[in-house]
């Protein structure tokens, strides 16, 4: 038992359990007033405490749905529904996922390209770097609706506007990380390449790039998480296209709290999967490159 508690798994499980219990308790407390109103309207009196608690966990549009209600909705809306149907959360998650991945790929390419340019050219570093750092401090996500509507007005709709938002969110961490990474080789290592009369391309391919790979993965983990946020927020401005953001928005208009929570958890699960996938790729590449285990 003591060994179990000393590890990480047991504490995490216990904390999760505590959160679950707290959630059920909060559901009773938050849903109780409305349940009382409902019971009065229905003329129900003398509802036993146990029944009342069960009622608060089974409302149609509860203020706070109980965990099992959210889990049930997720099950129904993914496994229980045809994947091509517009009611399927898997269908909407697929839309969000494709925008996320496209934007992430574009953003990473753009970020790496800019970083290579910045590291190899003094003038572009001096011109670009201060703006790239400054732009980290402004809430660029606010541009999302404008990108979607502006591009929509000139006929560009669907995946691309959302992917563009994801792209401009994810390229910042990649640029900053890669500039740092491409600069990690020490003077002594660059001198060594100089004594071999290596070409700039050889210095890049054999020294700078491998040295920067760990930084690339660290930035990509940040990048993919915010790519997903960009895609979801992009969807808020275009109800027609579908996606998890649209499910959040329609759920909010119709007061379908269970639907909101289900979409939220699917989005969280998606984010987790994506980060884990990048982390897995990182571990594979690191092992191939002989990193200390």
């Amino acid at each position: 038992m003591r060994q179990l508690l000393a590890g990480k798994t047991a504490p995490i499980l216990i904390v999760l359990l505590a959160i679950g219990l707290f959630w059920y308790a909060a559901a009773i407390w938050m849903n109780a007033p409305w349940q009382q109103t409902l019971n009065q309207r229905a003329g129900l009196e003398n509802v036993s405490a146990i029944d009342f608690v069960a009622q608060t966990w089974a409302q149609d549009k509860p203020l706070l749905p109980a965990p099992h209600q959210v889990a049930g909705e997720i099950w129904n809306a993914t496994v229980g529904t045809d994947i091509a149907s517009k009611r399927s959360l898997a269908y909407h998650a697929g839309i969000t996922l494709s925008a996320t991945l496209l934007g992430f790929a574009l953003g990473t390419l753009l970020g790496v390209g800019l970083a290579v340019m910045i590291v190899h050219n003094d003038a572009s570093e001096r011109s670009l770097m201060p703006w790239i750092i400054a732009s980290q401090t402004i809430p660029i996500l606010a541009i999302a609706p404008m990108v979607v509507v502006g591009l929509g007005a000139v006929g560009v709709t669907g995946l691309l506007p959302k992917a563009l938002i994801s792209m401009y969110l994810s390229f910042f961490p990649v640029v900053v990380g890669m500039v740092k990474g491409l600069r990690t080789p020490e003077a002594i290592q660059l001198d060594l390449m100089h004594t071999y009369s290596a070409t700039p391309w050889q210095v890049f391919a054999k020294l700078r790039w491998p040295a920067a790979v760990p930084f690339l993965f660290a930035s990509m983990k940040v990048g993919i998480a915010i790519s997903l946020i960009g895609a979801v927020v992009g969807e808020l401005s275009n109800n027609a296209g579908g996606g998890l953001g649209v499910r959040l928005l329609t759920g909010s208009y119709n007061g379908q709290t269970i639907q909101i929570w289900a979409a939220l958890f699917i989005a969280a699960g998606l984010a987790a999967l994506l980060v884990i996938a990048v982390g897995g790729a990182e571990r594979l590449v690191n092992r191939a490159m002989g990193a200390r285990p």
Partner: peptide
């Protein structure tokens, strides 16, 4: 040990959806 991994995990999630 219990809360930190969860906190790390949560900060990668699209919290804005709440």
């Amino acid at each position: 040990r219990g809360l930190l991994p969860i906190g790390n995990f949560v900060s990668a999630l699209p919290i804005i959806g709440i």
